[in-house]
Every structure is written in structure tokens, then in C-alpha cells.
Design a protein around this nucleic acid. Structure first.
Length: 462
RNA sequence: GGUACUCUGGCAGAACGGUUAUGCGUGGGCCUGCAAAGCCUAUACAAGGGGGUUCGACUCCCUCGGGUACCUCCA
């Protein structure tokens, strides 16, 4: 499959081989995750699910940054410890992303649990003379890495003249970045250079190399990480190994809110917890996949609603397939065609929008046949393909128990009887009751089927 | 200011040097006791502005303009 590589500004072939190694820069655990995190992580979740569907074994590593100024500051204001803060937000992370139906990564390494690896890494960089110890920490010397700027397409001279923060006297060059920061404020670790804590970028280099090796297939994250985070990772890692680091750099576009940047100062952060309450996982996933991952996407009520309509069509289709009785096929659906379209869309730089188009064509075709009473013996084939696509997209129809089914069938039977007797008011009362249970009845010609609708809280606010 | 990405019909969003993308929305219809959902059907000849290359450009080039991101907090 083809993936756009930020480093080369061109699509690169990703061979779907037995083992594919992916490192995704995760979150700094100082606050609840928001819809922007969700988009990046859902995009990678779909990539991973697709590769696995094609038979690859994916080693998927996603870190937690659990040592950072923001965590320490939050701990101070709450009179708590950095550990308590990060533990709390890691817990929330899993609450949110499990609810979003994101598959768990192979491992979630934490910076604080890899201090040894980080220090070994720094030792070697110092020994190779690309890093130096100064008054307040250990720094990487950007001048020693001639290719610095190759990922973000920045020119070192321009960066230097554009430095806008006060120059740190302890650095040899304003562009140098910290590998280790000296500090006496907890959390700290002893090191050969002095007590302190790791800088931000070093953990990802140390941990990705530990878990995935010196070179691996894909390294990714949000677009905003290109500079300085990923640029610095390349400088450190390639100085360390003298090998090409990631083969493909994949970056996901930002989420804006009604056209504006999401930021604390604007007060427009949409936490995952919040949007889940209103819209549920399936609609959020459809929303996040509705545009190409590399482009920005705007979070608006209108778009969410559009995806709600689509989700209802999917539910409808699913239950049509569940309820359809095996009979003669008068007309078939070209399942292979939509299946191939779906796959080739994803093969082409993970074009989820186009893949969704193929998926919805299958849904629409199925609904059409159902409406015409022509669903027949190939129902299982359609259902299997639909489930495959839904699995890759990470969409999930909630399970329904046998007991619930029996109860629904009984109620439908009673309603049918009342309808035959033309007691429509009483019949409608049963229908209303089912509606309260989120069961919608569909009266087709001569038969009634039911659809278990996911409750979407936002819907009642329209 | 610099760099990168981007600009398609009311909205979302693709492909492609020359054919209707598609979806949502909207109008009409079918089904139904009614409704909802679904289905059918109709509807937008759209490409930020201006140049150029070409027999022909939404697609390539130039230029002007808008947007988003980044320029050591950021998914």
C-alpha cells in the first residue's frame, strides 16, 4: 500500500509483509484527551486494523509521556505528585479510547520506566561528541547533525535568525535541545551528569528503538509534532544508530472547532469524554474518517449530524441482513466490487473517505434490495463483507441478548394482532414502548422488522 | 516575516489532461392504518481571482488572494 511520507514529500510503498512495526507518539498525560487526539489515534487504529485484516502482524507501540513540566505544574497546583497526575490521566486515556473502540497497542511504554535506556542513549551521544553537558543540562548539538531540518523542510540559518525566545546562555547554539534537564524538584533521577529528568524528545527515540529496532516501517503522530519533536527525534536517533530511522513518517492533520484552532485560551477544547456522551463512538469514528487524514478537519454540529444519518443507515442495513429470510435471489450485489474498491481506497494512502464511499454503496444496495424484498441467499456473503469493513473502520453495532430478542418478538406479535383488529391506538402504544427501548419498528410489505438503535444523546437536543 | 499544506456545487468530499464521482441537504413519489425509517426519482455542468501551456485543464506552470499548521507548550 502507499503512504505519504513527510520526509520525502512523496508516497512510499508500504509492503504488507509479515511484520510491520509502527510507533505512534501518544499523549502527555496531564489532562483529558480531546477530539484531536482521537482523530490521530483513530486514523492509526484503522491503518493497523487494515494491515491486520490483510494478514500482517503489526507491532504497534504508543508511548505515554509521563514526565513533563505540565504534569509537574499540575501536581503543584493540586498539591499532588507527578505520578498521581499521570496515573489518573492514563486511566482516563484508557476509559476514553476503549470506549472509542480503539484496539490496544502492543505496548504503551512510559518515559519514567525507561530512564536507564534514556541515559544509555545520552551516554552514547556524548561519547560520539554530538551532545554536551552544560550548566543546566545535557544538550544535543544540532550543528553536529548536518541534515537537521530535513523532515520539517527548515533551513537552520532561518531557524537561528527566527529564534524568538530569549537565548539560553547554557546552550552552545539556540537550536540545541535538552536531552537531560538538571533539577532537584521531583520527579528526578540520578545520572552520570547530575540529578534531573529527561527532555521531551529523547524518550521516543530510546523507546522506539528499544521496542522496534533501529529502523522500522512507520513513525507517526499529529502534524504539529513534525517540528521540533520529530525533527529532533531524527537527529538523535540517526546520530545514535547512523542508520535511517523510520522508513515512513506519517502525520495526521489537525481538528479545528468551527474553523478555529482548538486551544485552552479559546476555551473550545472538545474532550473525548464529552463528545462520547453526546455522539457515541461510531459517529465520532465516522466523523474522524470522513476526510483524508492528512488534511485538517472541522468539527461542526452539521458534520456530526450528517454522520448520525449515515450511522442510522448502517444500523438499518445491518438489521435488514439479520432479519432477512433465506429465499430465492432475484438480484445480487456485486460484493467483490465494493470490497475491492474499499481496499484499494485504503491502499491509496489510507483514503478513508473513499473507502467509506464503497462501504456506503454496499449499505445502500443492501437497503435497496431489502426495500424491494429481494434479499436472498447471498445475505450471508453481504453480511460477512459488511462486518469485515466495519471491523476495519472500528464500527460496532451493540450486541443484543437472546432474551431481549424474544421480548421484542413477543411485543411485535401482540402489535400485529392489534393491528389486524384495527385497534391502532393500542398497537401504537406498543410501538412507543419499543421506541423507549430504542427499538424502532420498520413495517415492510407484509412483515415487520426491528432495529436496535444506538441511543445518541445529541439527537434529543435537535 | 519564514516554511509546509490547502482552496471543488448550500455543506462534506474524491478521481481524472477530454465521460454523471459520491454522500448529506432540498423538491416530488413509493411503501404504511398512520408515522418513522427505508427505497425510487429529480436537483447543483461546481472548481478562490487573473494569466499561460494544450486541440482540450478542476487536473500541469506562473502570479495574486484566502485558509490551516508549524517556527522549540501542542495529537
Amino acid at each position: 500500500m502507499k503512504i505519504q511520507d513527510t520526509l520525502r514529500s512523496a508516497e512510499q510503498e508500504l509492503e504488507i509483509i509479515d511484520k510491520i512495526r509502527i510507533y505512534l507518539c501518544g499523549v502527555t498525560v496531564y489532562d483529558d484527551s480531546h477530539i484531536g487526539h482521537a482523530r490521530t489515534i483513530i486514523v492509526f487504529d484503522v491503518l493497523r486494523r487494515y494491515l491486520e485484516n490483510k494478514g500482517a502482524s503489526v507491532q504497534f507501540i504508543q508511548n505515554f509521556t509521563d514526565v513533563d513540566d505540565k504534569i509537574i505544574n499540575k501536581a503543584k497546583t493540586e498539591n499532588s505528585t507527578a505520578n498521581q497526575i499521570s496515573a489518573r490521566y492514563i486511566e482516563n486515556y484508557f476509559r476514553d479510547f476503549d470506549s472509542l473502540n480503539v484496539k490496544r497497542a502492543t505496548a504503551y511504554p512510559k518515559a519514567t520506566e525507561h530512564i536507564t535506556e534514556i541515559q544509555e542513549f545520552i551516554k552514547k551521544l556524548i561519547a560520539s561528541n554530538v551532545a554536551y553537558v552544560s550548566q543546566n543540562g545535557v544538550y544535543f548539538s544540532v550543528a553536529k547533525f548536518p541534515e537537521y531540518g530535513k523532515l520539517s523542510k527548515k533551513n537552520i540559518d532561518e531557524l537561528q535568525s527566527g529564534v524568538r525566545i530569549e537565548v539560553d546562555e547554557n546552550k552552545q547554539d539556540p537550536l540545541d535541545f535538552a536531552l537531560w534537564k538538571f533539577s532537584n524538584e521531583e520527579p528526578t533521577w540520578d545520572s552520570p551528569w547530575g540529578k534531573g529528568r529527561p527532555g521531551w524528545h529523547i524518550e521516543c527515540s530510546a523507546m522506539s528503538i528499544k521496542y522496534l529496532g533501529e529502523s522500522f516501517e512507520i513513525h507517526g503522530g499529529g502534524r504539529d509534532l513534525i517540528f521540533p519533536h520529530h525533527e529532533n527525534e531524527i537527529a538523535q536517533s540517526e546520530s545514535f544508530t547512523t542508520k535511517q530511522f523510520a522508513k515512513i513518517w506519517m502525520h495526521v492533520g489537525m481538528v479545528t472547532i468551527n474553523g478555529e484552532k482548538m486551544s485552552k485560551s479559546l476555551g473550545n477544547i472538545k474532550t473525548i469524554n464529552h463528545v462520547l456522551q453526546n455522539w457515541g463512538a461510531n459517529i465520532i469514528r465516522l466523523f474522524c474518517l470522513s476526510g483524508h487524514y492528512s488534511k485538517p478537519i472541522d468539527y461542526t454540529e452539521e458534520l456530526l449530524r450528517e454522520n448520525l444519518v449515515k450511522w442510522r443507515q448502517i444500523e438499518m442495513c445491518y438489521y435488514e441482513l439479520i432479519h432477512s429470510k433465506l429465499g430465492n435471489v432475484e438480484e445480487t450485489i456485486d460484493v467483490e466490487r465494493w470490497s475491492n474498491d474499499f481496499d484499494s481506497a485504503l491502499e491509496s494512502d489510507l483514503n478513508t473517505h473513499l473507502a467509506l464511499t464503497a462501504f456506503f454503496t454496499l449499505v445502500k444496495e443492501t437497503n435497496r434490495l431489502a426495500a424491494e424484498g429481494k434479499l436472498g441467499t447471498d445475505t450471508n456473503k453481504i453480511k460477512a463483507e459488511m462486518e469485515r469493513m466495519m471491523d476495519i473502520l472500528g464500527l460496532k453495532i451493540p450486541e443484543i441478548t437472546l432474551k431481549e430478542k424474544e421480548r421484542i418478538d413477543e411485543m411485535i406479535y401482540s402489535r400485529e394482532k392489534l393491528r389486524h383488529e384495527k385497534k391502532f391506538q393500542e398497537a401504537d402504544r406498543i410501538r412507543d414502548k419499543l421506541n423507549d427501548m430504542n427499538i424502532e419498528l420498520i413495517d415492510h410489505k407484509g412483515r415487520t422488522i426491528w432495529v436496535r438503535k444506538e441511543r445518541i444523546n445529541a439527537e434529543s437536543n435537535f
